[in-house]
Every structure is written in structure tokens, then in C-alpha cells.
Write a protein that binds this DNA or RNA. Structure first.
Lengths: 339, 339
DNA sequence: TTGTAAGCGTTATCAA
DNA sequence: TTGATAACGCTTACAA
């Protein structure tokens, strides 16, 4: 900037005024400055700019899980889009389900003086985020699930409603032995399980706790193994509600391998779900909208909206494609076809 | 930092020394400083830090296409991982195949004084990047394809070899009428087409230019329409080589819809490829490795490695799953089954 | 071992 | 309309 000023024969302040289009600068002077800018190829240093007191850095932090998971990818895509549009750069950090990594990542981001944070929180205590919020004045928005021990705006989907819808759909197609696969202590799957119980209760079907499978990890492999165990058990379910996309894949792999015609409804849509041998019925929500809402909420906060914390719940909908409409069928493993 | 210094009864320099662990500080003083740091909850301001001359910002820019595309998602994941490990934050920008957006995004990133850039370049002239590289001293690494008009390190996969392998595989399974779907003027698909021609030439099969389909856009829908046209034509191909993941999906949709038993090999692997009614044969490479290599190259450059620009070519491999092993079959549309 | 002074690129304030 | 000066938080050079 000093170079530009020198070249144009003016003071740096004047250059600043021209660059930012504020203050009063004579037409002629401005032109000289612009000429100098173009000649030198000057570009304003955003870093120095945000060093000034009271200035926000025009950067937000986005902290989420493995981008390989399409759920996180769409979320990120939408959040980045909205943030960029509003003039914010996005620093992306991935905390692979590790609370310690998450904590360190937040520290890094705060050190970089981000103006706000969008976080998909892990399980575990997040009280340290309250400090961040209060002490460093950095607003936070949680996405997909709230954080335990920390208060902030949060955007989630209607997990309980979706869980109920999935279960009800299976009941409506004649099932009464419906298994549910739940990933360990996740907020979302817990809510989906709650919906499952509610739907069964409403239909007068007692919950068989043997059909409520709490997995040790939320992986495809674990889901596959659990499904295998369920379907080859003495008294197998005729339908399975799998509460995440990864789990659904595992369920499908196992049932395909066993050639067991079990009904399946999954939570979260996925690519090619409609092209599998039996197209897959899912409950789904608008993941990109989740990211967009979060980004908008955060930007509002950064701009000083002082409203009390808001909780946004996005609707879900069921897409019937095939696996969810299969009726109850006798399981060849344990029950002869004649039964 | 000043607050910490005051609280500890020392000068700011001393605090700086403690925080950075350089210089000489008496044990006792350091302890007092650390106590003050903890009491206040001080965190070093990375922005002010990088304002010093000669300092790099410890931030790199990552500019790529739609994260919804799993290819970009894995690339980003791996690059972020490596960069973070090396202490760099990653600012993510998505330039949805729009050269003008891309140009503006690069400007934004330069303005934020990133220490380097990883770019998946669009088509179109990138001469402006040479200026960035020279004038702003910001090293650049291109991934997946080089940029026209700009020199820099580049990491690509063996597109030509992969194209040849895919084609040869189909030839080996008895095909001689092999169509190829190519997205418009992309570097990668152009190379894959080159491999296709090479393999056919090697096998003594003349290239029927009617089977070389240059799509207007690289979308699933366009690929689907083109496949439909091919398979219902007077003299249809018995096999199709689709040169991107999106295109492969379109090809599969069309052939499934037509119930036309055409052999298919796709470039780029995708989830559930092995679970479709006929599992899909693909040529694939390690996308995460692509991202990792790029990040490593960039960090080396930032650290001042002065070697001439390097071009890294990652190997590809063919995964035979089913669609690529189908033999040539008469097409019901144009040829009676008896033929 | 510790401290003083200067400067990085920008903008707010006040003066000319 | 324009400019001089100070300040943001930090680090480097040099001095005590």
C-alpha cells in the first residue's frame, strides 16, 4: 500500500480511502491511485486489515467429521457456499470423531481469530466451548446435534419424527418384529430410537429389546455383522430400521449375502439407493439446507443479533423405493417355508 | 499478550519467548508467565504473528469443485489432513467449474496471504496464476490436471494408461464395437480417450468415430441420454467405456432401463459399485493419495525447495466386478436374437 | 536473563 | 479534500 501511495504521490490513507471507497477523494486523485494499483498489482492485505481492533476476520471455522461421508460433504459444500457469498472465507478442520483432536482444532481456529464457528460436535463434554463463546466472543452454531455442556444455536433434523415414520411405515406393511440398529450413544440415533419406540407403542406392538441392537461402533462392518446375527437367530425380525447411512449399507450387504428377503428402511439417503437390486426405502432430510441454515445463523450472530439461542428443526420425509415395502416373510434359516 | 505480561510482571517480549519456547528465560519467570497465561486464558494471535515480514501465514488455500462429488471430497479430506498435520490451516473454496469464480476465489485467498495454493484447475486460461506465483511468491500445486497457461507442480493419475487398460479389458472379453463417452474438453477425459485409441490401434481394431461420443456436458443425465441413443441405434456398440464417475452412473441407468446387456467399464470407483445388480467394473486410482501428494509438494515448496517443477503420475488399476466381463451380446433393438 | 524500540499493513482520529 | 499519527498483537534486533 505504501508502494502504491508513493507511486501515486499521495499518502497511504488516501489509498486506503480509494480502496475501501469511503471518505472523500477527488476524482482525479482516485484515478491516479487506481492506476498505481493496477501498475503494481496491489492487493489489500486482509490479514493486516483484520488486525485492527473491533474488526472481525471475515473468516469462519467449520469443524466436522470425515468428508468422505457424503453427509458431511454436502453440509460443508452448502456452508462454504453461503459463507463465501457473505464474504467469509472458511477454514475447514476435520476432527475424526476424536474429542481431543476437536478441542485442539477449536484452539487453532480461535488462534486464527475466526469470526465464528460451525461445529458438528462429537460426543463428550463441550463445556470448553462455553468459555470460547464467552471469553473470546466467538459465536458458535452446532449442526446435526447439540453439544453436551455448551449452549449455542443449533440446527438439527427431526430425528424422532423420522424414526417414528420409518417404523410406522414398516408396521403399515404388516411387520411386527422390527429390529433397529443404533450406533453408540450418538445423539441422532438415540432420538431415532425414541421415535421407533413411540411408533411401536402407538401401534400396540410391544418392544422386544432383543431387536434393539446397540452397536459397539457405527461402522458398516459392525452393522453387517449385527444383521447377520439377527437374521440367523432363532426368532429373526422381518424388518430392520437402520439409523444411519453407514449402517444401512451394512444391513444391505448382510441381507444380500444371506439372500434373506428382509424389509429395510434406512435413515439418510445415499447415491444409487434407487439402483440396487431392490431399491432402498429411506427417511431423509435436506442436508445442504442444514449447512445453509447453520451458516446463516452464524453470520447473523457475528453481526450481533442478540436473540436467545435458537433451535432449528428441519423436516424429514420418507422415500418409498422397495425395501421398505416388502411384507413380512418367513425366514428360511429358522422357519420352514410352510409356516 | 500485554495483559499476560502485566499480570506476570514482565515485558511482552518475555511472554513471547515463553510462548514460542525460544530465547532464554529463567525457569521461575517462565512459570509465572505460564500461570498468567492460564489465568487469563490467553491464546496467541496467529494473525498478528503472520503479519511480521518474512513470516508465512501457516494457511494454505484449497480450491476445487463441488464437494458433493466424492472425488473432490476424498481429495480435500486427504489434503486437509496432511496440511493440518504440518501445522497449516486450510481455507476451502469451491469454484463450481466457473473460471470467473475461480479467478475471484484465488484473489480472495491471495488477499488472505495464504502461504500456498492447491488448485484443481478448470478449463480455460490460467495465465493469471503465473503472475500470482511470480509476483506474490505464492507457490501453487495443481491436482488432477495441469492448468493451461500456468506452470507449477502437478499431480495427476495415469489417465492414458487407465483409458488403455479399460479398453483393452473390453477387447480381451471379445468386444470390437466399444463406445467411449467423453466429457467436454476436460484434460482427464481427453487423455483417457487417447488411451482408448491407443488400445484399439494396438489390437488392430479401427476406431469407429460414431462410437466416440463427446458429450455437451459431463452430467449423469447427458451420459444417460447418449447411452440411450447409442443402444437404440442401428448398429449399437456391445461395450461402453465411460470416462468419469458421473458418466458411468448415467450409462448404468440407461442400460438398466433398456434392459440392454451392454458391457461397461467406468473410470473412477464409486460406493456400492459392487452391490448393483451386475457389479461394476472400474479403473480407479487412489484419490486420497492424490490429495496427500499435492499437500506434501506444496509444503515442500513453501519451505523453499527450489527444484524444477515436478509432475507426479499416480498409477491406476482395474477392478473387475462384472459389467466389464460381459461378452458381446446381440442387441435386441437392432439385431434379432437368432443372429 | 530481561527489556526497549521498531516495524509489519491497515484504518480511525484528528488536524491541516 | 488530503495527510500525519497512533494503534492493533506480535517478533526481531539490539541494549542493558
Amino acid at each position: 500500500m505504501r508502494d502504491v501511495a508513493e507511486r501515486a504521490g499521495v499518502a497511504v490513507v488516501t489509498v486506503s480511502r480509494v480502496v475501501n471507497g469511503i471518505g472523500t477523494v477527488r476524482e482525479e486523485t482516485a484515478e491516479r491511485v487506481n492506476a498505481a494499483i493496477n501498475a503494481i498489482g496491489y492487493q489489500r492485505n486482509e490479514i493486516a486489515r483484520s488486525l485492527r481492533p473491533g474488526q472481525t476476520s471475515m473468516t469462519v471455522g467449520l469443524l466436522l467429521g470425515d468428508l468422505t461421508n457424503p453427509f458431511y460433504a454436502s453440509l460443508a459444500k452448502a456452508a462454504v457456499e453461503v459463507a463465501n457469498q457473505a464474504g467469509y472465507a472458511v477454514v475447514l478442520s476435520t476432527a475424526d470423531e476424536d474429542p481431543e483432536v476437536e478441542r485442539r482444532a477449536v484452539g487453532e481456529l480461535i488462534g486464527r481469530r475466526v469470526a465464528g464457528l460451525i461445529i458438528v460436535p462429537d460426543q463428550g463434554d463441550h463445556a470448553f466451548l462455553d468459555e470460547v463463546n464467552a471469553h473470546d466472543q466467538v459465536p458458535i452454531v452446532f449442526v446435526d446435534r447439540p453439544a453436551t455442556g455448551a449452549e449455542a444455536d443449533v440446527v438439527v433434523v427431526d430425528n424422532e419424527g423420522g424414526g417414528a415414520a420409518a417404523t410406522q411405515h414398516l408396521v403399515d406393511h404388516g411387520h411386527s418384529r422390527i429390529a433397529i440398529l443404533v450406533a453408540p450413544s450418538y445423539y441422532t440415533t438415540g432420538r431415532r430410537l425414541r421415535g421407533y419406540r413411540k411408533a411401536l407403542r402407538r401401534s400396540g406392538i410391544p418392544v422386544d429389546e432383543d431387536l434393539v441392537v446397540a452397536l459397539r461402533r457405527g461402522t458398516t462392518d459392525d452393522a453387517s455383522a449385527a444383521t447377520h446375527a439377527l437374521l440367523t437367530s432363532a426368532h429373526p425380525p422381518t424388518a430392520i430400521f437402520s439409523t444411519t447411512g453407514f449402517l444401512t449399507e451394512g444391513v444391505l450387504r448382510a441381507s444380500q449375502q444371506l439372500r434373506a428377503p428382509v424389509a429395510v428402511v434406512g435413515f439418510d439417503d445415499f447415491k444409487l439407493a434407487d439402483m440396487l437390486p431392490t431399491p432402498v426405502t429411506v427417511v431423509t432430510s435436506d442436508t445442504e439446507e442444514l449447512g445453509r441454515r447453520a451458516a446463516h445463523l452464524l453470520i447473523d450472530r457475528i453481526n450481533g443479533e442478540g436473540a436467545p439461542y435458537r433451535r432449528t428443526v428441519l423436516p424429514v420425509r420418507l422415500i418409498a423405493r422397495g425395501t421398505g415395502e416388502l411384507g413380512p416373510q418367513p425366514q428360511p434359516q429358522s422357519q420352514p417355508p410352510s409356516q
